[in-house]
């Protein structure tokens, strides 16, 4: 599924990383617990989270997750955007809850990591 399609399904707004919108995304992982994200062996997945701080961007960087979907319209700081741009990470913000985002995307064919 293209990142642009993901953005559309969750009625999201692209915060940064527009150049990645035409990339194919196959897997996603939903968590607010960054320690859990760091245990994943897979890379190139979409991180769906409600945690909006510098550590969610850092965790995506270390986990080789180039796409982040922030749920519930959380505020994204200037520092987060700078960090994401520096590491070529796309951020999409959705007004929907993590449960709703995950359900919609699973239903549309995005695969779970587990």
């Amino acid at each position: 599924m293209l990142l642009s399609a993901i953005c559309s399904i969750v009625e999201g707004t692209v915060i940064c990383g527009d150049l990645r919108l035409n990339e194919e995304v196959t897997h996603a992982f939903s968590s607010d617990l960054m320690s859990d994200v760091l245990t994943l062996k897979r890379d190139n997945f979409l991180l769906i989270t409600g945690l909006s701080n510098a550590q969610s961007i850092r965790t995506a960087e270390m986990s080789d997750a180039p796409y982040i979907l922030l749920c519930r319209g959380k505020t994204v700081s200037k520092e987060m955007i700078e960090l994401a741009n520096e590491n070529n990470i796309a951020i999409i913000s959705s007004p929907f809850s993590m449960f709703k985002c995950s359900g919609l995307l699973y239903n549309a064919g995005l695969n779970p990591v587990y």
Partner: peptide, 14 residues
């Protein structure tokens, strides 16, 4: 901050 779940040291070891 998304940490403190008791997974850090075991994950380092892994």
């Amino acid at each position: 901050m998304g940490f403190g779940a008791g997974m850090g040291l075991p994950n380092i070891s892994d």
